[in-house]
Nucleic acid binder design. Structure first.
Lengths: 195, 195, 195, 195
DNA sequence: GATGAATGAGAATTCATTCAT
DNA sequence: GATGAATGAATTCTCATTCAT
């Protein structure tokens, strides 16, 4: 599997794969579909990836790790919990708007790739959870299950992204990131009412 | 291969299909997998469903419509907007807890089945959106994009369900429904801060 | 295989089969197609026929023998060779016009049924050949290969029937039977020119 | 399973297909039969043809067009109507004798392929019909329905080919082409007797 | 690096036939 | 006589992967 610095074929395979995976799903995309989109022969793909599974993984892993690290960096900068969470939500929106296809692939289409991540790798959920746990410890947030709190924040962003993908909302999330931050912050600060 | 004289084969096919679809995905589940799980031959399935696609649709449609109608009924009863939304969230949690597999299939696994629903059929999203639109008109909620508000409510519930499916949260949602209601209500009442 | 005299189910199966066989071909017609056309269950067909193959054979044999015998009778009556051949051609046209579907099934669609006929059974070709052989012996026709002569007569009728089936000619053959007789008689009386 | 590096697999598939189609019929020949005859795997066939239907069509179309064009060329050369028809009949006989299997496939076995030919493509029937129409206009033939006349000529040749295929006549048609020409010419010059 | 024919396993589906009711 | 679910083999076709060139 040579990573030839002067060949962008590998890169193009990954890009086209992500497009097709996001549009139709992984199982519904054949190696033939991919190689045809790239403009290479079927055999050529196997110069760059060991298998289709490997291709899926590579396409996922690199981008997912990069995204997670970016979120991590964003969360590291500001001082308070609210600002950390706000920065992460803005990071989600920015990633989405810059490449909705990649965003949807990473978040919605990847099938079981998440389970292959090493247990200590940074992921958006883990980064978010850590910020929230710390905030609860520091009394910046009321005491609560940090996983549930993470779900509330994440749900705010991801369901909005889903609606955008379905055409039910504007394709751009950044214009509503302020609202999403306010909503998420309100949610994690809410207290259970009597059911 | 016994011929079960008093068993409803069609029903059993649907049930096993939903289990397998929810566990592995639709494309990843073969007709063979299904019929093996049911204990019939592959050909026998086609006595009950015209095609795999038809089976997916039948398994989805009936349950989805029933769920949507239940939500609709729940939203019709109480007077205020907050109580309507609370009733719906409780409905989501109840449906999830009663049959998480079916819930996950309907909400997360169905692939493109939603697009086959007639435009006027009730769906959870449409019911929720209608309640929210009305509430905004009646000044029970601040003025806002009703689709975005619907995403905030839905995201609260569905991301929690996702975390439950991943084992990151308790498998039962009903115990936290009060918290989800509070969070959703806080979210739709929040106001965008400066981004 | 009861041939119940008061049941016409068997008869209806044969009739619908012939229609379907003629329209689509034997291999292209399934038992299900047939039973649906008749309005009975799939299993019921096997009360009347041992197998699909048996059904094809039964549907062919009875009609083919009847047709052959009719031709034989027609050829027996008139005295001269020309009149015998004319009677047979008229018989072909009449059989065609009375039931084109049956005619096409017997002549064009039956696949290998002919080979199952016992070697001494009367068939249109054998009847025709015998008439011609006799005619040559009696010097009513010039000396020639009787099989080739039979082909010339038969080709005249059958190709016309083919064109009728394709809509290239009128669906009725009887109006042109006079012409067909003249053509066939001219053909068997022709002498090979230098090739 | 050897990979024949210098053999034209596509060509061999077509050839074996035609043999099998002519021997058993199209529906009665499975893809498996074909690929076994060729000595390749089933999947390999689909590298060369999109589907079995496509294979049938390709096998038919190319040969049929070639044959039709040859007939057209043969009919174009000689001056008189009789010579044109004679040339065509000789063309039929030559095509038959050179490759009876292909001839039978094109003429008798093809099922519905004819209907796929574009309306303006040359076919043997159209060529023959045109020659006859012209001959009638030029008073080289008595006035008559040109389609019926075409049937008379065609029937002469094709029924002879049928008898040859059934072993009822010599497998070679060219030796009797003179007789066929005389018979066909006599037929189209005959006048309807009283029926 | 690249090609594309070939493989072999497996996919969905059809179908003649059987059989408990 | 009739039903129709069930069978099991066969059919067409797809697909990830290999490999000679």
């Amino acid at each position: 599997m040579p990573r030839h610095p002067f060949s962008n074929t590998r890169q193009r395979i990954e890009e086209e794969s992500i497009k097709l995976f996001a549009a139709r799903g992984i199982a519904e995309t054949s190696v033939r579909d991919i190689t045809r989109a790239v403009g290479i022969s079927e055999g050529a793909l196997y110069r760059h990836f060991e298998s289709k599974e490997d291709l899926v993984w590579q396409a996922f892993e690199r981008n997912y790790v990069a995204f997670s690290q970016e979120l991590e960096a964003l969360a590291a900068q500001p001082p308070g919990a609210r600002e950390k969470i706000a920065a992460m939500i803005r990071g989600f929106c920015k990633a989405h708007d810059e490449n909705p296809t990649l965003f949807n692939f990473m978040v919605f289409v990847q099938h079981g790739q998440l389970a292959k991540m090493p247990a200590d790798a940074p992921t958006p959920v883990r980064v978010l959870r850590r910020v929230i746990t710390r905030a609860i410890e520091q009394h910046e947030l009321p005491p609560q299950n940090p996983d549930l709190a993470a779900a509330l924040v994440l749900g705010t962003v991801l369901q909005t992204a889903t609606f955008a993908a379905y055409g039910r909302l504007d394709p751009k999330l950044q214009p509503v990131s302020g609202r999403l931050i306010a909503a998420a912050w309100a949610a994690v600060n809410s207290t259970a009412a009597a059911a």
